[in-house]
C-alpha cells in the first residue's frame, strides 16, 4: 500500500503502523457498512426491539374505572414482577422443568457420549448405518415426534399394548417422564453427532502410544478422549439446558392426549396461556424472568466448566 509513507516525518515504527490501519478502515467503511448493515438492522428489529418492548410491557399494568370501566394501561413499576414472584404456578413449572432437566439432560448426553465413543472405537462395524439410524429421529420435528409417541403410549393404539395397558404413561405420575423420553429420542442423535465430530478432530497419534502400552478402549475413552472433547460436551449441555427450560411443543401436544398436562405445566405453556387470557403485561414479565433465568443458568454452566478445564 502506497499510503504507508504518508507520514514520512514520523520516527517510530508504531506510528507508521497506525495510519495504515486507520486509512484502511476509513477506506473500506462503505464495504463494512454493506456487510454488517443487513444483519445488524434485522438483529436490532427482531432481537433488541422485542426485548425492549417486552421489558416495557412488563412494567405496565391495566387499570379500570370501576369493574366495567374502560381499561387503560398505566406505568406500574414492578407490580407485574411482584406478581411473578408470588405466582406459585410459575415457580412450580420452573421446578418441574428443572427436575426434568436434572434427570433428562445427563441421561441424554450420557447416551449420546456413549454412542459417539462406540462409533469412534474399533469395536463397532457398520458405523455409517448406525450414525444415520441414530440421527434419523432428529429429522422428525418435536411436534410430530410428540404426536407419534402419543400414539405409541396410548393404551389401545400402541404396538406395545401389553405394556401400555399395564402402565399408564400418560397419567399424572409418569407423563413428565414420558415427555422426557420423547425429547431424549429426538435429541440423542443430534448431540451424538456434535460429540462425534469433536472426536474425529482428535489426531490419532494421541492414542497410539496408549494403545501400544496396552490401554483398553474403555481406558482410552475415559482418560484421553473425554477430557479432549469437554468443550463439545459443554456446548451440548448448554443447548440442552436452554431447550429444557423452553419446553413447549411436546407438552402442548400431550395436552390433547391427556388431561395430566395442564396449561401451567411448563413455563412457556404458562406464558402462552397467560398471554391468551389476555394478560399481556404479566406474560411479558414471565418472559423476561424466564429469559434471565435461562441466561443465568447457561452462563453459570459455561463459567463452571471453563474453570474446571483450566
Amino acid at each position: 500500500m502506497t499510503t504507508d509513507i504518508a507520514t514520512p516525518a514520523a520516527p517510530a515504527k508504531a506510528v507508521i503502523q497506525k495510519p495504515r490501519l486507520k486509512k484502511k478502515a476509513t477506506k473500506n467503511r462503505a464495504a463494512v457498512l454493506f456487510f454488517i448493515a443487513p444483519f445488524s438492522v434485522l438483529f436490532g428489529l427482531f432481537y433488541i426491539v422485542p426485548i425492549i418492548v417486552a421489558i416495557y410491557q412488563s412494567l405496565l399494568t391495566v387499570e379500570r374505572d370501576g369493574t366495567f370501566g374502560k381499561p387503560t394501561e398505566v406505568f406500574g413499576g414492578f407490580v407485574q414482577y411482584a406478581r411473578v414472584f408470588q405466582d406459585d404456578a410459575f415457580w412450580a413449572s420452573i421446578l418441574r422443568v428443572l427436575g426434568f432437566g436434572v434427570v433428562q439432560v445427563p441421561v441424554m448426553l450420557g447416551l449420546a457420549l456413549l454412542l459417539a465413543l462406540l462409533l469412534d472405537s474399533p469395536l463397532v462395524r457398520g458405523k455409517r448405518f448406525f450414525r444415520l439410524a441414530f440421527f434419523a429421529p432428529y429429522a422428525v420435528p418435536g411436534v410430530i415426534a410428540a404426536v407419534m409417541w402419543g400414539f405409541l403410549y396410548s393404551p389401545n393404539l400402541s404396538p406395545f399394548t401389553a405394556i401400555t395397558k399395564e402402565i399408564n404413561f400418560l397419567g399424572a405420575d409418569l407423563v413428565l417422564w414420558s415427555i422426557a423420553n420423547v425429547v431424549t429420542w429426538v435429541f440423542v442423535g443430534y448431540n451424538m453427532i456434535i460429540i462425534y465430530s469433536a472426536l474425529l478432530a482428535i489426531p490419532s497419534e494421541i492414542y497410539e502410544a496408549a494403545r501400544l502400552d496396552g490401554a483398553s478402549q474403555a481406558r482410552i475413552a475415559w482418560s484421553i478422549k473425554i477430557p479432549l472433547i469437554t468443550p463439545a460436551i459443554t456446548l451440548t449441555a448448554i443447548f440442552s439446558i436452554i431447550g429444557t427450560l423452553q419446553l413447549l411443543a411436546e407438552p402442548q401436544v400431550f395436552k390433547s392426549f391427556t388431561s395430566a398436562v395442564t396449561s401451567t405445566f411448563t413455563p412457556n405453556l404458562l406464558i402462552y396461556s397467560t398471554a391468551s387470557v389476555p394478560n399481556v403485561n404479566l406474560a411479558a414479565a414471565f418472559s423476561v424472568v424466564l429469559a434471565l433465568f435461562t441466561f443465568a443458568l447457561s452462563f453459570t454452566v459455561l463459567k463452571f466448566t471453563q474453570r474446571k478445564a483450566d
Binding site: 463494512v32 423452553q246 399481556v280 418472559s287
Partner: peptide, 30 residues
C-alpha cells in the same frame, strides 16, 4: 475488517445466541 465497536457488536450477537427462540416469540408478537 477492523472498525470501531467491532468487539462490542460481536459480544451483543453472542448474547443473542443464548436468548432462546421461544423466549422471543411473545415479545415479537407484541
Amino acid at each position: 475488517y477492523s472498525f470501531p465497536g467491532r468487539e462490542t457488536l460481536f459480544n451483543v450477537v453472542l448474547g443473542g445466541v443464548l436468548v432462546p427462540a421461544t423466549a422471543l416469540a411473545l415479545p415479537l408478537f407484541l
